[in-house]
């Protein structure tokens, strides 16, 4: 039989097959995920190592005079415990000791909102001076050339040579840290902002204020735990 049966539909124009498209997208998707995962696997050890080195360097930079360190954590109920392993999402505090094993100060991690993204900084606190004695930016996505001056500008970094965070008779911070306009710093608890990087300067000041208000009283109350830390185990 050579003729079409009238009740049958005439053969429709061949629709473009979707198989090549699915094949292409799925194939490329698999290829790309493999590429990303293998790069991640390949670079992860180096990145972790570099990040730890960077942190370690920063700790000794914000605690001038320290030659060894020990890692502690502050539990949510305000206790000091030794930090073990790879626990994430806890407030870490690094205690730095000099050659004689005396406590030089504490390096404390702080984070908060910067201009574009989360800003992570590390500051050194000296219990003896009751002051911040150093500050380093650990992670930032501040605008290159502008906001990133908070890491480089010598005038700005000079703010953190001795920034007052002393406690009053109620064991609370007497004068919370405040940012002020460039060139108008009059008190030891004020931060002289950078012209042209006001938002990032303020962000650093706010992160420090919030963190010191919360942690410095806890740290000062438990100072003995840090001072004794050099005697207990947990390596250099």
């Amino acid at each position: 039989m050579n003729h079409h049966h009238p009740t049958l539909n005439p053969p429709a124009a061949e629709p473009p097959s979707s198989w090549p498209m699915i094949r292409a997208l799925a194939g490329i998707g698999i290829l790309c995920s493999l590429l990303i995962v293998s790069t991640w696997q390949l670079t992860l050890p180096t990145i972790t190592k570099k990040k730890n080195e960077y942190l370690e360097k920063a700790i000794y930079q914000v605690l001038p005079g320290a030659t060894s360190k020990k890692t502690f954590k502050i539990t949510p109920d305000g206790k000091i415990e030794q930090f073990e392993g790879e626990e994430r999402g806890v407030q870490r505090v690094f205690a730095g000791y000099d050659d004689q094993g005396r406590l030089v100060g504490l390096a404390i991690e702080a984070r908060g909102q910067g201009f574009q993204d989360v800003l992570k900084i590390l500051y050194g606190f000296s219990p003896e001076k009751q002051a911040i004695i150093g500050m380093r930016v650990l992670e930032s996505k501040e605008t290159p050339g502008l906001g990133d001056k908070i890491e480089k500008d010598p005038d700005f970094l000079a703010n953190f040579k001795e920034l007052d965070v002393s406690l009053d008779e109620n064991a609370q911070i007497r004068n919370p840290i405040v940012p002020v306009k460039h060139g108008t710093k009059a008190n030891p608890w004020e931060i002289d902002s950078i012209t042209g990087a006001t938002i990032s300067s303020k962000a650093v000041a706010n992160i420090l204020r919030e963190n010191t208000l919360r942690l410095i009283p806890v740290v000062m109350k438990n100072l003995q735990a840090f001072e004794d830390g050099s005697l207990a185990g947990n390596g250099p």
């Binding site: 180096t46 990145i47 990040k51 930016v137 290159p144 990133d148």
Partner: peptide
């Protein structure tokens, strides 16, 4: 990031 954390920080977003 593996080459230099500093460079990664500079280029940021």
């Amino acid at each position: 990031q593996a080459i230099s954390i500093e460079l990664h920080k500079n280029l940021g977003a």
